[in-house]
Amino acid sequence: MVSAITGATTATAASAAPPTAFTTAQSTNFDTFLKMLTTQLQNQDPLNPMEGSDFAVQLATFSGVEQQAQTNKLLEQMLTQSGGSLGQLAEWIGKEVRTTEPVWFGDKPLTLDIAPDSRADNVTLVTLNEAGKEVLREEIGPGEGQIDWLGRNDSGEKLADGRYFFVIESMKSGEVISEDRVGAYVRVAEAEVGAQGVELIFEGGGSALAAQIEALRGGT
């Protein structure tokens, strides 16, 4: 479910839609076909068995029905993730989502949502590349809210284009009391349906399941 954020367009997934009559009919047809084929094999005359070509045709039909049933199952997953409507899923394309997965950084700043431990008296933003290697540390103070991350090192030089993710270290009296992943906003380029549900593909590469997205806002 996508949660609301201050100053951003809110999108809350609707409750999962029940299976459609079409999906139910496909499932029934699949089970009926399987029972008919099993009964035919059990009762065929051993002195006059089914021709190999006829059996091959029936197996091909069986495979087609099975594939259709699997396709319908994936469609149900997609409809559930998108709140019951393919149109709603399409509306995600071009919008920005907040994720803790690695996101692309190029010519434009990234918007980060900073939420340190409330007990912290100092906060450090740690930037890591896609491989998990630390590339930058910045003291940002104990404030909470959205910031524009410019991706500049200590010399003021821009970091190389690539995918990065972020962690904040909350400190109190010089000791780290918590480490938390930071949500970053990235634009959605496309959506795909897989075995785990709807996967959102980000501009510049990288992805996350729709169920893992924390927030959604209109594209800029």
Rank of each mutant, 00 (worst) to 15 (best):
W92N: 02
D113H: 02
W104E: 04
G106A: 15
Q70S: 03
T99P: 02
L79I: 13
N72M: 09
L75R: 06
W104T: 01
L86F: 13
T71S: 11
I93H: 02
R98H: 00
D121N: 12
N122P: 00
L75W: 08
L86R: 15
L112S: 10
A120E: 05
N122K: 11
E96F: 02
N122F: 01
L74H: 09
Q88M: 14
F105Y: 02
D117W: 13
L89D: 11
T80K: 13
A115W: 01
T80R: 14
L89P: 13
S85Q: 14
T99C: 09
S85A: 11
M78G: 13
V103Q: 01
G87P: 06
Q81Y: 10
T100W: 00
R98M: 07
Q68I: 12
S82I: 05
L86N: 12
A115D: 14
W104I: 00
E96N: 12
T99L: 05
R98A: 08
N122E: 11
K95A: 05
G83A: 14
K73R: 11
I93D: 01
D121L: 06
A115N: 14
L74D: 03
S82Q: 08
D113Q: 10
G87E: 10
Q81M: 06
P116K: 11
L110N: 03
D117P: 14
N122C: 04
S85Y: 13
T71H: 06
T80H: 09
L110T: 06
G106Q: 12
D113M: 01
G84F: 08
F105M: 06
A120W: 08
F105R: 00
K108M: 12
N122T: 07
T100F: 00
Q81N: 10
L89T: 07
G87R: 13
P109Q: 08
T100D: 06
G83S: 14
K95M: 03
T99M: 06
L79C: 10
Q70A: 07
L110M: 15
N72F: 13
W92D: 01
L74W: 08
P102L: 12
G94M: 05
A69W: 01
A115Y: 07
